[in-house]
Design a protein around this nucleic acid. Structure first.
Lengths: 149, 149
DNA sequence: CTAATTGCAAATAGTTTGCATGAGC
DNA sequence: GCTCATGCAAACTATTTGCAATTAG
């Protein structure tokens, strides 16, 4: 596992350092979660790591550049990162509690291709975000509570 | 025209003030453009307006709340706003020539609603961008030329 | 050994807020 | 007249950067 990660970093032209390996492993252990730099920093603190916040930012940016992570800008003012998925997926975000679901829908994917062709464009990529509000207010609030503790 | 805008503000429960009317008109005069708060402030400065930056932020936020404007978070760290389009549409962008087509597809819209429901979220909005390359190279280049002149 | 990396603190960018003054209704 | 709105400066949040010390290759 760690061998794999060392290869990954080398391929990205990055030196093998403890902060980079630690943060990479952290993101891999939270595959479908979205973490801000601050989130990552807090987890590191809990693990009694002495990696500084500035390094977290630097490493996350490098990983984004290297396509190891994907950066999202869901909520206005801060970026969140997730491990780059091997399979493409889109996102549904609750505007109230910030909960994020991931989904992938063949029907939509297919239709996108058709539409692109109609406009004479060969589709290369897309970004789709659905924004809404949890219908179940209890679930919605539960998650807010989780965030606060 | 200004009558219309006064109605718009009243409907949003906002008092009719000069900063709000000015900023509203400004956004209407730049229908498909995306402005950050700073952009708006700079334009106001050029017009020798004495509206403060804090007011620009407050007004843009109020207009966003009132659905007069739409807020986007394309680029990581700042929000940009555009006049809310009367009809929803999505975008196809050619990565080579920058040409943008607007489209709206009922099948995709419908499917998005279904997916959201599956995840227990009431869909409020979405953003969909298709990125690709013009299949017809001539068209693609023509437009580049057009843009450059 | 040399250049890249790190931690810390200071700097910056974008945005929000407290407060006294001024304007809408 | 009473409340809401504004301008200014100060506060805040997310992020970046300068620099000296440290480490990977």
């Amino acid at each position: 596992m760690s061998e794999e990660n060392i290869k990954l970093l080398k391929k990205a032209g990055l030196k093998i350092t403890e902060p980079r390996l630690t943060i990479l492993a952290l993101m891999q252990n939270h595959k479908n979660e979205h973490f801000s730099a601050e989130d990552v920093y807090k987890i590191l603190l809990e693990q009694h790591s002495d990696i500084g916040l500035a390094t977290v930012y630097r490493v996350l940016n490098q990983f984004d550049e290297a396509n190891i992570l994907i950066r999202h800008n869901f909520e206005g003012n801060k970026s969140v990162f997730e491990l780059a998925p091997t399979e493409h997926h889109d996102h549904i975000i609750c505007e109230d509690c910030g909960k994020v679901f991931e989904f992938s829908d063949n029907l939509i994917e297919q239709r996108q291709k058709e539409i692109s062709e109609q406009y004479g464009i060969k589709l290369k990529a897309h970004s789709l975000y659905l924004y809404g509000k949890c219908s179940d207010i209890e679930t919605c609030e539960e998650i807010v509570k989780k965030d606060e503790k």
